[in-house]
């Protein structure tokens, strides 16, 4: 059972304040634009909500198959962003101890994560292959 101490409560209050601030940052701009934007859109054929197909009626569904190469880009992005995420705690305690410990730690970490990049490179992620057949001579 965690005792009810003032500094625990204060920390909890800080977390709550950040949470509310984050929610406000997301919701308040939407609210503002609802209040000061024009009330309705003038329309004549009631096609305001239709998906755009350059004036024509849309053909087919939006849920189509995408090329798998986009998935690979997403994977590489995940690799890099996890990298940055774990470097943030290192940055907060950097150089509190004398010596090269922190620097070596950072290099080790980045070195291991760069293996992800190397693997992707060897697999040919950075070569965008065109799917069109070669032009006849």
């Amino acid at each position: 059972m965690i005792p009810l101490r003032m500094d625990y409560l204060l920390d909890f209050f800080y977390v709550c304040a950040f949470f509310v601030g984050g929610l406000a940052l997301a919701i308040v701009p939407v609210l503002i634009s609802h209040l000061i934007a024009p009330a309705k859109t003038r329309n004549y054929v009631h096609k305001t909500g239709q998906a755009i197909e350059c004036g024509m009626d849309p053909i087919g569904d939006a849920w189509i198959r995408f090329g798998v190469v986009y998935y690979l880009y997403a994977l590489i992005f995940i690799g890099f962003s996890v990298d940055v995420l774990y470097l943030l705690p290192v940055a907060t305690v950097y150089n509190e101890q004398p010596g090269f410990r922190d620097l070596a730690e950072v290099f080790l970490f980045i070195g291991i994560l760069s293996l992800v990049l190397l693997y992707a490179w060897k697999k040919g992620v950075f070569i965008w292959k065109s799917k069109l057949p070669p032009h006849p001579p």
Binding site: A37, P38, K40, T41, R42, N43, Y44, V45, H46, K47, T48, Q50, I52, C54, G55, M56
Partner: peptide, 16 residues
């Protein structure tokens, strides 16, 4: 072209 241009006019959000 008229139906297409009306559709596009509809799809521009206000103020237009």
């Amino acid at each position: 072209m008229a139906p297409a241009i009306l559709t596009l006019y509809d799809q521009i959000p206000e103020p237009k």
